[in-house]
Write a protein that binds this DNA or RNA. Structure first.
Lengths: 210, 210, 210, 210
DNA sequence: TCTTAACCGAGACGGTACGTCAAGTCTTCCT
DNA sequence: AGGAAGACTTGACGTACCGTCTCGGTTAAGA
């Protein structure tokens, strides 16, 4: 539970032993997150109010505020549940295959599912909510980067790319280009776009900078 | 005026000749934009209300709504005035020099001035305001891309990179990586970051010697 | 208007000339007071919420808060409108006749109309709202006392009672006994009660024949 | 204890003999009443919440609700404990002496101690809580009246006043006038006020209504 | 000694209403 | 007709208490 709903006060302090008082309702947790997810998909984070979430979940507003300190952190929890396993760690044998597969999965998620609007809504909200910004980094961004860094490490082990590669910069280029198109929508994220992004990055780090 | 404040209804119908009635106050325009700029710098787009802008500008709310249909478009106008000339088109003789110079200018603007919060605030707002999203593309993004595409065209003419390079993808990688760090703040935009971004892209698109 | 709705900010300062801005809606005033009166009669002051008044009046909550700073002052205005002329100044020629007539009118008002619950509700509310307490004194109690003091003054002029009578104490006994029964309800306010109250007071202050 | 805290469910079923189960904590009773008394004195009945009483008494809310069905009844119990013996039955030998002494005691209690705010708060609360209204009559008003009726009976026995005197009306005038000033605060309860109230009533019932 | 019933503190539960803020619109007088 | 002022309706905010409920854990009497 703690792992899935870290946005709130997380109930009893770990190690403090007895949790005292009526325990938080697991049903309420579920109802709130379900309602949030539905509303997020229906009208986006900005147009969703805590009041509406409470009404749809059949829950008092305080029950939500007791668990989450802001709309953003609630939305983050709802998002994370759906997003986590949609981003698998591919292992195709070559870096090109891995990168293509990973970017395809990301693009598919943000264009074919409700993840797209959720993601943009959360990034938007994070711009004026420092706590959400931090939580987003800790619970979405860093896990994703850590996972994808593995692909680069394997490529280094295989000798495909030099060990001197700045993996952080590579990840920023990799996700940055796609995120840029997602946020501004100036150009579509086609298969060709994906291929070329991977091509440029791959060529850029494969070639020796002698 | 029309060219600088296209966010609003543009006042008198174009071509109708005589504007009839009292003309719009130029002082009001200036006062509103100045107040907006101040508030944007002080507390960001999200925490700025039309009501406050009106109060500080010494102007009725109606006077603002008559010119701009949304807070975002007003902020965009205030932003554009300040942002435009901060992004010069460098011409250093080599693509590497041009790219480094351009990215340095961008990073400096968003980290050393109030442009950073304004930019992130506007991108955030654009996520739930389609009109602003369009205006942002037309009035900020495309001009910037057009300007930077020239650098790539010159490099092609010089034979530094092949004509087959997908310039849009290059621009997405170029701006995407930096914007990514700006929005999420997971890593700083140091000089080294700038250099490596340029290096990877450059290596990725430079003509093969084979 | 000022005379009838002194609970609010009373709009423009008198003498300041032009009232600037959109004037307060007279319809809203009326709708609010009507709704308040209905709800007060239906369920009493305590069980009436500002929210419900707003809803029934078809008015925003702020429109009420702009005019009245508390529920009590709003209720007071609604009450005063109804109560004012229900308490006529009788002139029967004798003090006994005047007092009987006045007390009858008061008892009739609080037992036969909705004035009773309103009055008790307002006195109750005034116990924890000093502003209402003051307003009640100024706008209900003192006018009523001033009016009834006239009856005593006429009796003094006629020589029925000595000029040395403490008229304030007489009024306190007169209203106090009835109010006491109204608030605690331990005994009914019958015609006999009225007669005996008047008898005792009258006997107590009538000039000694000695 | 039962005699002093009759507001609650009175614990064990009458006649059932053995109460079964854990007996109610006497400490909790005391703590709750003490906390109530403190808060009543500090901020009045209206501004005191059950939640705060529970917190200060170091007691669960349930423990309070198990004993008292409403805030008013709890406050009544706290009040009665303090108020009871403050109102002695004077026996000075003359009705004037008795009345003066009794009214002095009452005025002193409500003006010099925290009894005043408690009393007004309870009367206020009783206006929208019929149960409290009944309890107030049974446990405060009637005992007080019964006690003071004795003074009138003694005066009748002594021949000071005729037996035909309506003692209820006299008591209403006696307490009504003072309560009136207490609730509305339009005039102070001075020694002169007390004397004149007694004078008028005494003169009113002494004199024969031939 | 072991149930068993009612208590205890703590604190979460679904609600209601609070008083405030800002949104975008409307209405007045004035320029 | 534009402009400043300030009203208007709407809707959401986050908070405080309400009276109820559920925990784990006493505390006694009865079996």
């Amino acid at each position: 539970m703690n792992a899935e709903i870290p946005g709130g006060a997380a109930g009893a302090g770990s190690g403090t032993g007895a949790p005292r008082g009526r325990p938080r309702s697991v049903e309420a947790d579920r109802a709130i997150l379900t309602a949030t997810l539905e509303l997020l998909a229906e009208r986006g984070l900005d147009a969703t109010s805590i009041e509406e979430v409470a009404a749809r979940a059949g829950v008092g507003k305080t029950t939500i505020y007791r668990r989450w300190t802001s709309k953003g952190l609630l939305a983050l929890d709802a998002f994370v549940i759906s997003f986590r396993e949609e981003q698998p760690l591919p292992d195709t044998g070559t870096l090109r295959g891995d990168l293509l597969s990973a970017l395809h999965a990301w693009v598919r998620a943000v264009t074919q599912t409700a993840m797209g609007p959720m993601l943009t809504g959360l990034i938007a909200e994070a711009q004026h909510d420092p706590e959400l910004r931090g939580a987003w980094r800790d619970r979405v961004l860093e896990p994703l980067r850590t996972q994808h860094r593995v692909m680069l490490d394997r490529a280094i082990a295989r000798g495909e790319i030099p060990a001197s590669v700045d993996r952080d910069v590579v990840l920023d280029l990799f996700f940055g280009a796609a995120e840029h198109r997602l946020l501004l929508g100036h150009l579509p994220m086609t298969g060709e776009f994906i291929a070329r992004v991977v091509d440029v990055i791959l060529a850029g780090i494969t070639r020796t900078q002698t």
